[in-house]
């Protein structure tokens, strides 16, 4: 090592201080709060320790489980569709010469402010005034209450997410494809491999680490997805689109029950961590390097 031990610690210190400030201290404060009765609108009761009561109340709450289920729908279906679409778009553009010229247009949804995305889609989904139903009427089909029924609302919300975040997966895969070596493809062409063989035997295995990273990033994002849902449905109709982030936000900042809200976020941290650990195990280390 070039650096001596002491200088290593000195150089490491700023990062450590920042990390303690923004991540480590809040994390332990959150654990601490989750074990207390802590209601901002009931200061007379103080903030006594109540053991695992906040956790027990959550586990007994059907809405808590439902919000986790909704979240998993988002993670599984949302990311799956985004992956397929992103992959198709990337390979399409990869085959075009000077394809990177149109690249910025693909990225517009991703760089839009989520609140603007939410408001725009909320209006587009409107039954009477919305542009989606306008086109549906034009081609003579029945207009749909996009955000008005429970099953359709879930679908519509995921559709918006797909629109917004497919570009990210596309971008990651596209750059991954650009970096692929050309020799295997030349060899495959000479050997007369079919398109499918090239896809399964060469492209996918070579792209695997990139794909896994893309999935990981998007899945973590989808897990804590809040902004557009809050704008479009705030979890409704009923609880159909109420994800874990929406419900925990409601507990902590509408009901001001900081104790229960903290317990909720601790559970979410644990779930995301389990997911990440499994996922990182799947990615073979030498391929990542």
């Amino acid at each position: 090592m070039l650096l001596k031990k002491r200088s290593f610690y000195i150089l490491f210190l700023p990062a450590l201080v920042v990390l303690i400030g923004v991540a480590i201290f809040p994390f332990f404060a959150c654990i601490n709060n989750s074990l207390r009765f802590y209601d901002l609108t009931n200061p007379a009761k103080g903030t006594p320790y109540i053991g695992g009561t906040n956790y027990r109340l959550l586990f007994e709450d059907g809405r808590f489980w439902h919000s986790l289920l909704v979240t998993f729908y988002f993670v599984i279906f949302g990311v799956a569709v985004q992956l397929v679409l992103g992959y198709l778009m990337a390979s399409l553009l990869n085959g075009v010469e000077k394809g990177s010229l149109v690249l910025p247009f693909f990225l517009i949804p991703m760089v839009m402010t989520p609140v603007v995305v939410g408001l725009t889609w909320r209006l587009m989904y409107d039954h009477i005034l919305g542009i989606l139903n306008y086109f549906i009427r034009l081609i003579g089909m029945t207009p749909q209450p996009w955000l008005g029924t429970e099953s359709l609302a879930l679908f519509s919300i995921i559709l918006t997410d797909v629109w917004e975040w497919t570009p990210l997966i596309f971008l990651i895969l596209y750059s991954g494809m650009k970096a692929l070596p050309t020799e295997p493809y030349e060899a495959a062409t000479i050997d007369g491999a079919s398109i499918w063989q090239v896809l399964y035997r060469i492209t996918l295995p070579l792209l695997k680490p990139v794909i896994l990273v893309a999935i990981l990033l998007r899945a973590i994002d989808a897990f804590k997805w809040f902004d557009t849902i809050y704008i479009m449905t705030s979890g409704g109709p009923g609880v159909a689109t109420e994800s874990a982030s929406i419900y925990s936000y409601m507990i902590a900042f509408n009901f001001f029950n900081i104790g229960k809200g903290s317990a909720f976020s601790i559970i979410m941290i644990i779930l995301v961590n389990i997911f990440c650990m499994i996922f990182i195990k799947i990615i073979p280390e030498k391929e990542v390097a």
Partner: peptide, 21 residues
């Protein structure tokens, strides 16, 4: 009511009324 009335807040109620729907 409109088919997606379950998501109507004050804004949507005003919209549907002032547009004559």
């Amino acid at each position: 009511g409109p088919p997606d009335v379950s998501r109507y807040s004050w804004l949507e109620v005003q919209n549907t009324f002032v547009t004559g729907n």
